[in-house]
């Protein structure tokens, strides 16, 4: 009952927190991209955007850290470069006449805070050359690798550093990475 009560109270659109505002901005952009410059589509669009941002705020509670713009600007080229290399790597292994596979499992302990940062980290591992996140237990990630000869630890530490730069983490934590 108490939970229901809170549910109703959450739907009052009185408090416009900055996070709510940010989500409205993001979803409006998505709606604009989907429908183009048709003005009349916003008759459906405005309620849809409001409901989507409210639901998003309820389902994924706001995290304590915010995304840093410079970190994001550095992350995008890093990610594109690494995933392109991953594609080349897989292509080489798939098309060569000899079988170049030497798969194995690696365990890695991450220092990233729990929540969306860690989930993001785990999902990005799968797109890097030769690595695939197989399991996540607390802060321990089990990684399946295509080739045990690859410098997996260095790659993943590099990725972890970039993800940590993406969100604002206090500098002593960053140093320990």
């Amino acid at each position: 009952m108490i939970r229901d009560h809170r549910f109703v109270k959450d739907f009052t659109f009185v408090s416009f927190s900055p996070q709510f505002f940010f989500r409205i901005l993001v979803f409006s952009t998505v709606w604009f991209v989907l429908t183009g410059s048709d003005i009349s589509s916003w008759i459906v669009g405005v309620p849809a955007v409001l409901i989507a941002s409210k639901l998003n705020l309820m389902l994924a509670p706001s995290s304590h850290y915010s995304i840093s713009l410079s970190g994001a600007l550095r992350f995008v080229p890093f990610f594109l470069n690494q995933s392109f290399r991953g594609g080349i790597d897989v292509m080489r292994r798939a098309l060569s006449a000899k079988q170049l596979l030497n798969p194995g499992l690696v365990s890695y302990v991450t220092l990233l805070p729990e929540g969306s940062a860690r989930i993001f980290f785990v999902n990005t591992i799968s797109l890097l050359p030769g690595t695939l996140s197989a399991e996540l237990h607390g802060n321990q990630v089990t990684i399946h690798t295509l080739d045990r000869g690859l410098p997996i630890w260095a790659n993943i530490q590099n990725l972890e550093y970039h993800v940590a730069a993406l969100i604002h983490i206090s500098s002593d934590k960053k140093k320990s990475l």
Partner: peptide, 27 residues
């Protein structure tokens, strides 16, 4: 094309997942 070749040729689930996700996303 190499994603599909990998899906056919690779020996187990995990390696096939590698081929599928990486190659197709880059393509």
């Amino acid at each position: 094309l190499s994603g599909t070749v990998g899906l056919i040729r690779f020996p187990d689930i995990y390696t096939r997942l590698h081929a599928l996700t990486k190659a197709d996303n880059v393509g």
